[in-house]
């Protein structure tokens, strides 16, 4: 492992993303990426009595699925890094309580998936683990209940609001394998530009994404064009545009190879999702479902995965606090030079 510049870590023995799995809810299953997911659920409860139990089941089944698909024996998976949006990360801890793998609960709001990949890949690179499991989940209904209003309340969603993705994405990262490799890790700083509107998370998180992107380019000396695709987590239409423009003011042009999972996962017009998708699962399922297959098929060879999170809760927004954002990045490449 080697430190580059201010924040970036270059992995000496880049770990391989051995396998991924994704399960999504019905709305995501009607979206443009439906065919890439492992499983699309028929209903949001999935046979459970509460939204929280349903979310736990989704992450549990996704993790079971990724372990089975990867072919790695469960006793060779040394640690698990997982987190979600619900208070005290209950979806992960309750969903994975029977997993029997040492567990790190991770909270980075919607950046949790990449935060887990950062930590997991460093563990593997440092030989502290042979294989690690990284997982995350979110659920539209449990998130609305905790962060916003009861589902039956007849309120209007403003055009800047985003739709929490129901689903779970999980990955097994191991020391042996032929890629795609995690080559660089850039953990992000907390950036707060004073946005208070809980219905405009994209704008609240965009400055953090810009900060992490610029830092990554400076630390590594890479240009945006080094990557086939730069992918942010859940900035949505509003946040995506802000990131494009703000990176340009700092002298980096990412317009040609930049996508946002919140924009990709839903059809804005048909599904009425306003500014796009959000939630831990947004980048979790979009990477596990779509981008991982693109890497495997070598349609994409170098991507920079930047997950963004809004570190807020219902209490802080009632107290008039602004919304701190965070963004973590990992570079994933199909070959190591």
């Amino acid at each position: 492992m080697e430190r580059l510049g201010a924040q970036t870590i270059k992995l000496q023995n880049p770990p391989t993303i051995v396998e991924v799995a994704s399960i999504v809810g019905p709305k995501e299953g009607q979206g443009p990426l439906a065919k890439y997911f492992d499983q699309c659920l028929e209903d949001e409860f999935w046979g459970e009595k509460t939204w929280e139990k349903a979310e736990s089941k989704i992450i549990k089944e996704t993790v079971n699925s990724v372990i089975t698909k990867s072919g790695v024996p469960a006793d060779q998976i040394d640690y698990c890094f997982a987190g979600d949006l619900l208070n005290q990360c209950i979806s992960s801890s309750f969903g994975l309580r029977e997993l029997n793998i040492p567990f790190f609960g991770v909270f980075g709001a919607c950046s949790t998936f990449v935060e887990s990949l950062c930590l997991g890949s460093i563990f593997v690179d440092a030989k502290a683990a042979r294989n690690v499991l990284c997982a995350t989940s979110s659920h539209f209904c449990s998130a609305e209940k905790q962060f916003r209003f009861p589902l039956e309340l007849g309120n209007q969603r403003p055009p800047t609001s985003q739709w929490t993705v129901t689903g779970s994405g999980a990955a097994v990262v191991g020391e042996n394998g032929s890629g795609p490799y995690i080559t660089m890790v850039t953990p992000g700083k907390i950036v707060d530009m004073g946005i208070k509107d809980a219905n405009n998370m994209g704008a609240a998180m965009a400055p953090a994404a810009v900060d992490t992107l610029i830092t990554h380019f400076r630390d590594t000396g890479r240009k945006p064009s080094y990557y086939d695709m730069i992918i942010t987590g859940d900035l949505g239409y509003v946040g995506k545009e802000i990131v494009c423009e703000l990176t340009e003011t700092k002298g980096y042009n990412i317009k040609n190879n930049y996508e946002d999972c919140g924009v990709l996962i839903f059809d804005k017009e048909k599904q009425d999702t306003h500014s796009g998708g959000s939630g831990c699962a947004c980048i979790g399922v979009t990477f596990s479902g779509y981008f991982f297959k693109q890497l495997k098929d070598k349609k994409l060879n170098r991507i920079l995965l930047v997950a963004t999170g809004a570190l807020t809760n219902a209490t802080t927004s009632q107290q008039g606090e602004s919304i701190p954002g965070i963004a973590h990045a990992v570079a994933i490449e199909t070959s190591i030079n």
Binding site: G194, I195, L246, T249
Partner: peptide, 23 residues
């Protein structure tokens, strides 16, 4: 576009970037 440094500048910029409700 000029670089954005302060929270106030960012707030104004975001207001201008965010679509309004169809009032």
């Amino acid at each position: 576009m000029k670089p954005i440094e302060t929270k106030q500048e960012y707030s104004n910029y975001v207001d201008q970037k965010s679509p309004n409700s169809p009032i």
